[in-house]
Amino acid sequence: MSRPVRLDGLVAGYERDLPIVKGVDFAVAAGEFVGIFGPNGAGKSTLVKAVAGAAATFGGAAFLGDTLLTGLPAHKVLGAGLAFVPQTENIFATLSIAENLQIAAEVLPRAARAARIGAMHAMFPDLARAPHRPAGSLSGGQRQMLAVARALIVSPDAIILDEPSAGLSPRLAHDVFTTLARINAAGTTIILVEQNVRAALAVVSRGIILVDGRVRLDAPAADLAARDDLGALFLGTAAAAA
């Protein structure tokens, strides 16, 4: 099942009088694959952390379908059906690969757990090879796959990923994007935060450009890919209208 995600005037950050996300509205339809782009410091990570319950929200609200996510602790946001993969430290390095998957599977009814872990092994065969090794022994690409598998294991209605290609070679980044496209094709709503804009525009259907904590442009991926002033848009020097 897949559900839409909606943000209504979301204000978020780490200190109430110094918000980083300054009122963001957008809607992502069920089954849509949307990219969030923007310069460093635009508030992309803070925005998605706030939706996932990992950063404080000072105003506005985020919804998954009809469920209000704002105010829920992170573990209840996951329980509500929205999974989040942070950019860094997104696996438990001291736990085994199997334990990383088991922890996420705990959210599911007991009878469903083994089948979902099996499904993740089928999707990411590297994770089935040595399940009892510490997850910290995995390579960068394998770690991202484990982090994605950990999020997918609960069959979320929507998944948010914060720069899953960071630190990966172009080939591995391509593999990550291809995997995400496959997951989206299977019906999961995906919101992807990326620095690697050109590569991400090849897989997302729509791009939202965030500058200084506000939505500067929200346009179909094909339109964004056709523009040659993306860099200037990021800096706020180009007109947003296409």
Partner: peptide, 24 residues
């Protein structure tokens, strides 16, 4: 499972919550 959750919280409480663990 409870012990696994304890080890996960020990390593990274923020990630533990995102992975569905009730940290409190």
């Amino acid at each position: 499972a409870a012990g696994r959750a304890m080890r996960a919280v020990r390593e990274n409480p923020a990630l533990a919550a995102l992975a569905g663990i009730d940290v409190d």
